[in-house]
Computed example of a mutant assay.
Amino acid sequence: MKVKVFNPQGELVGPVESAHVAKTDAEWQAQLTPEQFKVARGKGTEAPFCGTLLDNKRDGVYACLCCGLPLFESTSKFNSGTGWPSFFRAIAEENVVNHVDRSYGMVRTEILCARCDAHLGHVFPDGPAPTRLRYCVNSESLVFVDATELASLADPAA
Rank of each mutant, 00 (worst) to 15 (best):
Lys2Ser: 09
Val5Asp: 07
Val5Gly: 07
Val5Ile: 13
Val5Glu: 07
Asn7His: 05
Pro8Gly: 05
Pro8Cys: 04
Gly10Leu: 03
Leu12Ile: 10
Val13Ile: 09
Gly14Asn: 07
His20Phe: 12
Ala22Lys: 05
Thr24Ile: 10
Ala26Asp: 15
Trp28Glu: 15
Ala30Leu: 07
Gln31Leu: 15
Leu32Tyr: 06
Thr33Ala: 06
Thr33Asp: 12
Thr33Lys: 05
Phe37Trp: 12
Val39Thr: 11
Val39Met: 09
Val39Glu: 11
Gly42Ser: 13
Lys43Val: 02
Glu46Asp: 03
Gly51Asp: 12
Thr52Phe: 06
Thr52Gln: 10
Asp55Tyr: 02
Asn56Gln: 08
Lys57Tyr: 01
Arg58Lys: 15
Asp59His: 13
Gly60Tyr: 10
Val61Ser: 00
Leu65Asp: 07
Cys66Trp: 12
Cys67Thr: 11
Gly68Trp: 05
Pro70Trp: 01
Pro70Glu: 02
Leu71Ile: 12
Glu73Gly: 14
Glu73His: 13
Lys77Leu: 11
Lys77Ile: 07
Gly83His: 00
Ser86Pro: 00
Phe88Asp: 15
Ala90His: 00
Ala92Ser: 13
Glu93Pro: 10
Asn95Met: 06
Asn95Lys: 07
Val96Trp: 08
Val96His: 10
His99Glu: 15
His99Gly: 05
Val100Met: 01
Val100Cys: 00
Ser103Phe: 14
Ser103Asn: 13
Tyr104Asp: 04
Gly105Val: 09
Gly105Ala: 04
Val107Ile: 14
Val107Ser: 03
Arg108Cys: 10
Arg108Tyr: 07
Thr109Arg: 04
Glu110Val: 06
Leu112His: 10
Cys113Val: 09
Ala114Ser: 13
Arg115Leu: 05
Cys116Leu: 11
Asp117Trp: 08
Leu120Glu: 03
His122Val: 07
His122Phe: 05
Val123Lys: 02
Val123Asn: 07
Val123Met: 03
Phe124Glu: 03
Phe124His: 01
Pro125Trp: 01
Asp126Gln: 10
Asp126Met: 08
Pro128Ile: 15
Ala129Glu: 15
Pro130Ala: 09
Thr131Tyr: 11
Arg132Asn: 13
Cys136Glu: 08
Ser139Gln: 10
Glu140Gly: 05
Ser141Thr: 02
Ser141Leu: 02
Val143Asp: 06
Ala147Gln: 14
Glu149Arg: 13
Leu150Ile: 02
Leu150Asn: 00
Leu150Ser: 01
Ser152Trp: 00
Leu153Phe: 04
Ala154Arg: 03
Asp155Tyr: 08
Pro156Ile: 02
Pro156Arg: 01
Ala157Lys: 08
Ala158Asp: 08
